[in-house]
Design a protein around this nucleic acid. Structure first.
Lengths: 200, 200
DNA sequence: TTGCGCTGTGAATCCGGATTCACTAGCGTC
DNA sequence: GACGCTAGTGAATCCGGATTCACAGCGCAA
């Protein structure tokens, strides 16, 4: 875990601030990542933050971008596996990866997906949400074109699927916040839902 | 529209405050409904609010409860139509009503469904969300029992459906905020999605 | 008519955050 | 050794909200 390294003594203040913000977000979402909390956790002063970013929004936007890129890459990698025979299988791999990773850090997922954030960060979120949707829309459209699934508004289906998974994943965790009883079973059930929703 | 009446001169300050809060929420969500804005819109002072509620949270929780009850009633009424032959048809009627009404007041829908709000209001939201889910879960379970749709975790499907519709409806409108191009077509497409997602 | 309680006022205040800024500390250069 | 540069400090400040409170009006019962 490179985060751990970043938290250790050797890292620069800049890196420690980013790492602290990520840690706090994992634990309590954006709301827990106040400037004071970030600085304290990083063992730095509030002012240090402004040495490296114009404001909290910019720091957080950078963090957001980094984390989302990592997520997107993981999903794309899963979908690019040449062993996957069909577009539907690729879409399933992408969404399954999304679910599995979200369940591993539910609080973080909630922040990335839905928690209200600084406008600068919100802008970042929209960019990535758009990319997720586009990727998924392309896969679904390919599946339609190949006759794997019935004709449909791929973009609408993509949006609905993202919403369905988000609600089923972070919806429960936001209220419950507690034990994901059996992550694999949840993911499996959701993939059945997905498969049916796109038209088998 | 009884709201209009409530905004007119005759109504009590209490009613005007509630009506103003609703109006502002319709226009700009919870974020736009500050105490100052509510009081100004109602033609009252900030202090008047505290004459009728302990704080803003309580006012808003009451508003939330009222509006959600109305929504829930409308959905239940739609699902109770004796002409509907199957459980799936009833579920469709309920969800179609949900969609249609949400598209009529997208900003309000976003506030009810997803916008971050005062903790007191959040509690109210969870109560209603739970009721929505329960109603839908019961319908789906009935459909399973009747053999209309394949066996499945009805609660999970219900959650996913709520999320899917929410995202497809308010997701787009939150960023775009603009023209719902053709509400009926969107609802129709979403109901196809629903029908497939539950297993036809 | 006096007194009392209820409704309403709005400037003053509080509060939880982000942000600033005068200052210190290290460090390479001339 | 003075100079200037960058990184870092943290108390003071600002800011956008909610909340308070001393002070009216007003109606009604004694």
């Amino acid at each position: 875990m490179s985060d751990a390294a970043a938290t250790s003594g050797r890292a620069t203040t800049r890196d420690r601030l980013l790492a602290a913000a990520l840690e706090l977000t994992r634990e309590g979402g954006y709301a827990a990542a106040s400037v004071a909390a970030i600085a304290d956790r990083a063992g730095a002063s509030r002012g240090a933050l402004y040495r490296h970013w114009p404001g909290k929004g910019e720091l957080y936007a950078e963090l957001f971008r980094t984390v989302c890129s990592r997520e997107l890459s993981a999903m794309q990698a899963a979908g690019a596996d040449p062993a996957l025979p069909t577009a539907v299988a690729r879409a399933e791999a992408v969404l399954g990866t999304f679910c599995t990773r979200a369940l591993r850090s539910p609080r973080l997922a909630w922040t990335l997906i839905a928690e209200p954030v600084h406008p600068l960060v919100e802008a970042e979120r929209l960019v990535f949400r758009q990319r997720y949707r586009e990727d998924l829309t392309l896969l679904l459209q390919a599946a339609v074109d190949d006759g794997e699934i019935p004709p449909q508004d791929a973009a609408l289906t993509a949006a609905a699927l993202v919403g369905a998974l988000g609600e089923a994943l972070v919806g429960p965790t936001s209220p419950l916040a507690a034990a994901p009883p059996d992550a694999d079973a949840i993911v499996a059930a959701l993939l059945v839902f997905v498969r049916r929703a796109v038209g088998c």
